[in-house]
């Protein structure tokens, strides 16, 4: 019974959506935001706050990124709001700069993964045949090894550095993007307007970017949020293991690891960077959940 009422409400929502498009995109966005559930608003607020902190890190931080300002493991005080870390650097400063580094690196990695995977997926869908077979089997094999283990293996081979980290994780994660991009593009490339553009003699790049891409953007956008969370958690895990972002760069994963001893004295300071990671992923997940709910029936599908 509940099933039916839900379909009805989503229908009426989409009907209400059509005239609103004419009223201008911003008013639609504004209205949708206003109607959004609490969890989505909370998620958006968190994401915006993190971006602001990341962008204005040098302004907000009381000290320099790797400046040693006191003795080791100082408690919370007026000088050092959250105390100091294992080398006597200000914890709050490191947290703020960590936002910039950890989120920045995860963001670049995700973008790269989408560039590789998205383009590969669309290409496979448009060209079909051998290209599709080759790329798909390659992706199958890459996905047969657990991602963290594969990343560890590759990091052993090429050594730990930020470019290596970004490259490895982007390639490994692009396999997931490829699968999605290929699947949704498959539905688009059989449409008449794509056929028409092929007959007009447009090149592959045109078809991929002008005909297919705009039609698969909503699912890709939602996937971007989920992949970002995944990459962010993976990079944090690697940094926590001491194999990701290397010191003296401030990074949340390694901050937890460096200060973990404090927990045995029931001091919660080392949990703060971990909580920062958790809060951002929760925020992004809430937004994606709402977005999926709005844009399609994919809600229970992951």
């Amino acid at each position: 019974m509940t099933e039916r009422t839900e379909t009805d409400s989503s229908l009426s929502a989409s009907e209400a959506f059509v005239p609103a498009v004419r009223a201008g995109i911003w008013s639609v966005v504004g209205r949708e935001l206003w109607k959004a559930p609490f969890s989505a608003k909370f998620g958006l607020l968190v994401v915006v706050a993190y971006v602001v902190v990341a962008v204005f890190a040098p302004v907000l931080a009381p000290f320099g990124e790797s400046e040693i300002v006191g003795s080791e493991y100082e408690p919370w005080s007026e000088d050092f709001l959250l105390g100091t870390d294992n080398l006597g650097r200000d914890m709050l400063t490191r947290l703020i700069y960590g936002a910039r580094n950890t989120i920045g690196i995860a963001f670049v990695t995700t973008c790269l993964a989408f560039l590789i995977g998205g383009f590969g997926g669309i290409l496979a869908a448009i060209l079909g045949g051998w290209t599709d077979q080759l790329l798909s089997r390659l992706v199958d094999v890459l996905m047969a090894i657990p991602q963290l283990i594969f990343a560890l293996l590759l990091l052993t081979i090429v050594g730990t550095s930020v470019p290596a980290l970004v490259g490895i994780i982007a390639v490994l994660d692009s396999t997931r993007v490829y699968r999605l991009a290929r699947a949704v593009s498959m539905n688009v490339v059989v449409m008449d307007f794509v056929e028409a553009s092929r007959l007009r003699g447009e090149g592959i790049v045109w078809i991929a970017t002008r005909e297919v891409l705009p039609n698969i953007l909503p699912p890709l956008a939602a996937e971007f949020g989920l992949r970002f969370c995944f990459v962010f958690l993976l990079i944090s895990a690697l940094s926590f293991l001491g194999l990701g972002i290397q010191p003296p760069t401030a990074d949340w994963g390694s901050m937890v690891r460096d200060n973990a001893t404090l927990i045995t004295y029931s001091d919660i300071t080392p949990l703060l960077p971990a909580a920062a990671i958790a809060l951002l992923t929760v925020g992004v997940n809430f937004v994606v959940d709402w977005f999926l709910h709005k844009s399609s029936g994919l809600r229970d599908d992951h």
């Binding site: 926590f240 937890v256 809430f286 959940d289």
Partner: peptide, 11 residues
């Protein structure tokens, strides 16, 4: 559960 999925294991 949505939150738990988003938490890093070490947290």
């Amino acid at each position: 559960s949505l939150s738990a999925v988003s938490f890093p294991e070490f947290f």
